[in-house]
């Protein structure tokens, strides 16, 4: 790529500026939405500045690894993005992660990108559910959707909930 032309450099500076602006517009310095798991965490699956610039490449790369090669423990799983970045409504349900003002929408609106991903991919993590069977389903979902090690805490939390419920059921 010929990144030495003037236009390119200007475009780059502009986009970098846009990204800073987007960051500034959202709560504090972050586009992370309140009520999402990410809001209570320190770091994304890669350094934040790297994620801002390269998440689309990472997703595409790892999508091929999963679908074509059957590698499920990918670093950049779309299911995992949604698991951390979808904001809870408060009643156990989630806002679709690409709704207006939600995590996967704000920046994209700004740069006029419209994602097709969510025509097929779920926009929400599996709902929090109260019954044992449903939670089991949620666990299966996570096991099969290839969450990476960084998200192990989520599974632990779910396991604890599952155990708590099964104790109640068997009582």
């Amino acid at each position: 790529m010929h990144s030495s032309t003037g236009i390119v450099r200007v475009a780059g500076v502009l986009l970098a500026g846009a990204l800073t602006l987007i960051g500034g517009l959202a709560s504090g310095d972050s586009a992370v939405t309140p009520g999402s798991r990410a809001a209570g965490m320190d770091a994304c699956v890669a350094p934040t500045d790297v994620m801002r610039r390269n998440h689309m490449e990472f997703l595409k790369h790892d999508r091929d690894r999963t679908v074509r090669k059957g590698v499920r423990d990918i670093e950049y799983s779309l299911a995992a993005c949604i698991g951390c970045h979808a904001a809870e409504k408060g009643n156990g349900d989630y806002h679709p992660v690409n709704d207006e003002g939600q995590f996967c929408s704000g920046c994209h609106e700004y740069v006029a990108v419209s994602l097709t991903c969510f025509q097929c991919h779920s926009k929400k993590p599996e709902q929090k559910m109260s019954t044992l069977g449903a939670l089991q389903g949620e666990l299966d979902g996570d096991r099969f959707s290839g969450l990476q090690p960084g998200a192990a805490a989520i599974i632990d939390e779910q396991l604890q909930r599952l155990h708590a419920i099964s104790r109640e059921v068997s009582r």
Binding site: M1, S3, V8, R9, G12, V13, D49
Partner: peptide, 16 residues
């Protein structure tokens, strides 16, 4: 995107 992405990388290379 690769085009823009690389440019951004170039612009911010020192820090990132």
């Amino acid at each position: 995107r690769e085009f823009i992405g690389k440019t951004v990388l170039a612009a911010g290379a020192a820090t990132v």
